[in-house]
Computed example of a mutant assay.
Amino acid sequence: MLPSRELAEIAVKALDSKKGKEIRLIRIDKITTLAEYFVICTGTSNTQINALCDAVEKELTEKGEEPLHREGYRGDTWVLLDYGCVVVHVFNDEARKFYSLEHLWADGEEVDLSAILPHAEEK
């Protein structure tokens, strides 16, 4: 079983490899028992949202990690991949603004992705 931070970083890189937008990694273990990390990303279409999720699942399956749950909400405007310690949320732009998870979990610690994604500053 991978450490949660490593699992989250693999998910972040997989999302980036499929051109996910506004990727955020938020550490929430100090404020909830739901998970240790949330990974949040925006996809530009239903097709891209599915491709983003497929990329995360492929990379993590290769490392021996399977999602506990995969849920899609509101006709593929939001897909959630639950790995227990890490929850990956992939939204379309409208759903991301509506659910505003960054605001909801503002007490969490946003992880600087510049070491994980060297071009993160440019986005």
Rank of each mutant, 00 (worst) to 15 (best):
E57A: 13
V111F: 01
V56I: 07
L15C: 08
E110M: 15
A35L: 05
Y83E: 04
S114R: 14
V12A: 10
E57S: 12
R27L: 09
F91D: 00
S114P: 07
R96T: 00
G43C: 01
G108K: 04
I31R: 04
D112G: 04
Y83A: 03
W105I: 08
S4K: 13
E65G: 08
L52W: 03
E66I: 14
T61K: 15
E9S: 07
V86H: 00
E36H: 13
K30H: 12
V90N: 04
A95W: 02
F91Y: 03
A11N: 10
G72A: 15
L60Q: 06
T32R: 11
D82R: 08
N46R: 15
K97N: 14
E22M: 07
H119C: 13
C41F: 04
G108C: 06
V56K: 02
E62Y: 10
S17Q: 08
H69T: 06
D54I: 02
C41A: 15
K21W: 06
R5E: 13
I116L: 14
E65W: 08
K21M: 08
E71S: 05
I10H: 11
H69W: 07
Y73S: 11
I28Q: 05
F98Q: 08
E121D: 13
P118W: 08
I40Q: 01
C85R: 13
S100M: 05
K63A: 07
E65S: 13
F38C: 09
T42I: 00
G43T: 01
S4I: 11
P3F: 14
N46D: 10
N50F: 10
H69Q: 09
G108T: 06
L60W: 04
V87A: 03
Q48G: 02
E57H: 11
H119R: 14
H89C: 13
D76T: 15
V56S: 05
I23G: 03
E36K: 12
E94N: 13
D54S: 03
V90W: 01
L80F: 05
I26W: 07
A11H: 03
